[in-house]
Design a protein around this nucleic acid. Sequence first.
DNA 1: ACGGTGACTCGCA
DNA 2: GTGCGAGCCACCG
Length: 92
Amino acid sequence: MVLAAVPSGTVVTYGQVAELAGLPRAARMVGRILGKLPKATQLPWHRVVNAAGKISLAEDSPSFKVQKARLQEEGVVLNKNRVSLKKFNWQP
DNA sequence: ACGGTGACTCGCA
DNA sequence: GTGCGAGCCACCG
């Protein structure tokens, strides 16, 4: 699983994940899969945000809060609902 | 089997 | 920054 390769403290966009998965424009698949994943999943789905660096969930969504909180725990800087998408070089 | 929908992204105006 | 249209693929009724 591509998501499993996401290091701690790093956020990736759906597009990034999709591309790494071999589906350059299938960002939707990533999101859809995440939603289908069991809550007991081992995948760091909370490290996945949209191209805007924003969590693609409703602020009133329980998952949203969890994701946000977890990201901060991992050391990811969050500005409101926006994460710092630094120029992180993805395993060059 | 078929069509609609969606935790999205990109290019263009 | 904001809006529109097109592309992607899997799940659900």
